[in-house]
Design a protein around this nucleic acid. Structure first.
Lengths: 198, 198
DNA sequence: CTACTTTTGCTAACAGTGTTAACTTTTTTA
DNA sequence: TAAAAAAGTTAACACTGTTAGCAAAAGTAG
């Protein structure tokens, strides 16, 4: 029965083309402009075909959240690999995180901004855990190796600082100039690292 | 011509009842559930009446953003008044900010989460500036009185940290327990204040 | 008090949205 | 070749924001 195998492959390709179409619309017009009808038209099929692959629009969004966290994790990993010093690693990760948020605005916004209703499901997304582990491993090293409750606390602090910097900057409430933004980032991370063993 | 005066008063009351209706729906079912039709039904008028007071739905949202920043500013002001020491003031403001975000989730979310498309208009909202000033005045004191570019930088850092803590917590990505959250806040602010003169 | 003007509110429609039920066509299996 | 299964279609439902055009009420002037 090589038939079912080929069919599965076609199904997979169709699903991929749906995500590709959705991504194209998202990057050009933003996530709110992504509609099932537009996707259907782009892939050359009728509307309900999309529902053969995704239960609803939120399921498509969840796929993007997953993908976003993979990209973010990869960026963090690449940054980390550039140094062996854990403190330096954290600084590099911070810069990479900030760069990701600003150069992948659409991704970042659905990962955090619009993901609010998905509170419960968020914990089930493995990619978020992976991203966390990358940072935690550097933190552990910096703190001396043992994995204390302190490490969890510091991870939350670190992530919160990064998210705050990125998102405040994204909505541009106070219009800080470009050079200042980089300094804010370094300032915050500096304070974080200096206070790492308290 | 006391007629026009009375009419203006009625208009104002109508507008207020629209906002009240919108607020009621928002608090019960969240902002996305707020629709013009529901508002119209709640105030006992037909649908287009709402458009006599607000150009579109975004205008209603902007009103909520304004109101939210007033509430946030008030909370910050009340917290600040509890101490004369600027460092202590910042800590109190931080706690108040965090409390506001969590106890006024719906407000906070439209103030930051969904306000993304309004980048340009954000700068024109005076209430945001007011909120900033409250914090900046404490920062200036702590730094010795002069208003250097440093102060602006520190203000951005402070706000970013607070926003990061609040919003990361709100979407609850990693499910930090309640006691830990408070510690994360204190940890981050501690690091910030210790690094204030660098 | 009547006639005119302005304001106010209504109904109905347009152009979208997510989602689903029912039907047709194509493809695979026996 | 006939039955069964899968894939894809059209058409509808129940919403959404927004607007045009018309009816009714209220205020103003002769």
């Amino acid at each position: 029965m090589a038939v079912t195998e080929r069919r599965l492959k076609q199904r997979e390709q169709q699903k991929e083309s749906i995500l590709e179409a959705a991504r194209a619309i998202m990057l050009k017009e933003g996530w709110p402009a992504v509609s099932i009808r537009k996707i259907a038209e782009l892939i050359g099929y009728s509307l309900p075909v999309v529902y053969n692959h995704f239960e609803n629009k939120d399921a498509i969004m969840e796929d993007f959240i997953r993908h976003g966290f993979i990209l973010l994790g990869d960026a963090a990993l690449a940054a980390k690999a550039q140094s062996a010093d854990p403190a330096q690693q954290l600084k590099l990760i911070a810069i990479a995180y900030y760069d990701f948020a600003l150069s992948h605005r659409e991704y970042y916004q659905i990962m955090f901004g619009l993901g609010v209703p998905n509170c419960d499901r968020a914990k089930e997304i493995a990619e978020i855990g992976r991203f966390g582990d990358i940072i935690i491993s550097s933190l552990k090293q910096l703190q001396g190796g043992e994995c204390s409750p302190q490490t969890t606390l510091k991870f939350h602090t670190f992530w919160s600082i990064l998210h705050g910097l990125s998102s405040i900057n994204m909505i541009n409430l106070t219009a800080a100039p470009g050079e200042l933004q980089q300094k804010v980032l370094q300032d915050a991370i500096q304070g974080f690292i200096m206070n790492i063993n308290n």
